[in-house]
Nucleic acid binder design. Structure first.
Lengths: 214, 214
DNA sequence: CGTAAATATATACAGCGTAAATAGGAGTTG
DNA sequence: CAACTCCTATTTACGCTGTATATATTTACG
């Protein structure tokens, strides 16, 4: 029984990130979060301004994990490295992309903007004009967020882990229909494969397309 | 004052889609929805089983708007047509991708799977094996969902419409910093440009990459 | 008409974020 | 030491959420 540590913003964010990891974004409530810290809900408000502040803090924290690519690398490798690092950091904490697209977080910190700046730089070096940079960056960002956010829907999912059979069941019962001829054939391939290596492959396709379309 | 029309599942879904359009996914509550129909909240439960059922119904409804591409088109055009139709339908009702990625809806209807099947077919025809089809489909789907979901975050946004200045303000005040050299230059380009034409361009880049990487 | 079935309402419960008032403990000052 | 202040934690409360349950009302039918 260690003496209870003092409540601090940092401890709150740590606990919030952990709770969001196990309970999901909806499961992250002020009352539950306080309980994991052995405290009442309103005590949190002495250290964070509100729940949005917590989510902003979490986002900021996770974005800090994103590595900056070696600036001497050629631009395709810089894009690959930055995007993959973003993907890995966000995938470790899917609550972050979720909080961002649902407007529950609105980070404006330098840390959250740094990876974007790096991608802007890489695409500029590729010879794209500003519109091209915006489009290329948007494509990469969509790929990152899309693949993470969609990986929890029934549409596509990870390798063998985690209820592959039951989750597919509601889809299977329609597949005898000849209305979806390709779907039934694809079912096994949908549940096989690794999400990250798929992402890497998709990123390569995108980069190849950028190179070829100048 | 027309005589009040009978409450029906269809009317409920219509009203829900409209309410979600104006108030967003979080603003769509059973009580508010009932109020727009001139009825008490619990009356809805005689026609839908719960809120998830409403969201499933909305998703299903919106997916019905997705056009099927001419099967005689070559595969790149079929992908383009299907993906663009998906993009347009979902962009008209962003609550749908939002409900899907937050697991508030779980459609298993044939209508919701049809566009996926069409894309599977197109990519198969391109000569990809099943793993390749899954990856290509995932990339297109990520692009669709990602661009729609991210268009409401501060990171990237539409043309001049809707608070471009105030929304950018929190970002601008950091840009004098030399930590984000490309960001400040990109700011005007970020708020210019049309979301849909960006999407089309990104889709073309992806298709070009697929063609070139076989 | 009377009765059964369908539909609408009223009430209630547990949970949410958080405003406002209160209580407790640590530190400093007289 | 006493008194006062400041910071932190708790308590209570308000309006919101989805929906279970019970009741009331309206409609359909023999």
């Amino acid at each position: 029984m260690a003496p209870r540590q003092p409540l601090t913003r940092r401890r709150i964010l740590d606990a919030a990130l952990a709770l969001a990891g196990t309970e999901g974004l909806d499961g992250l409530s002020m009352r539950k979060l306080a309980k994991t810290l052995g405290v009442e809900a309103m005590a949190l408000y002495n250290h964070v301004t509100n729940k949005t502040d917590i989510l902003d803090g979490i986002v900021d924290r996770v974005f800090t994990d994103i590595d900056r690519a070696d600036p001497d690398l050629p631009w395709p490798d810089r894009v690959r490295a930055t995007a993959l690092s973003m993907y890995r950091a966000l995938r470790r904490h899917p609550v972050v992309p979720l909080a961002l697209v649902t407007d529950r977080a609105n980070p404006t910190s330098l840390r959250a903007l740094q990876p974007m700046d790096d991608l802007f730089g890489a695409f500029s070096e590729a010879g794209l004009n500003d519109d091209g940079v915006r489009q290329a960056f948007g494509a990469v960002q969509s790929l990152i967020y899309g693949s993470i956010l969609l990986s929890t829907t029934g549409f596509i999912h990870d390798a063998g882990q985690a209820i592959p059979r039951e989750q597919l069941a509601p889809y299977s019962h329609r597949l005898d229909s000849d209305k979806l001829p390709h779907f039934s054939r694809m079912l096994p391939a949908l549940s096989s494969g690794d999400a990250e290596s798929d992402f890497v492959r998709q990123l390569d396709v995108l980069i190849a397309g950028l190179s070829v379309l100048k």
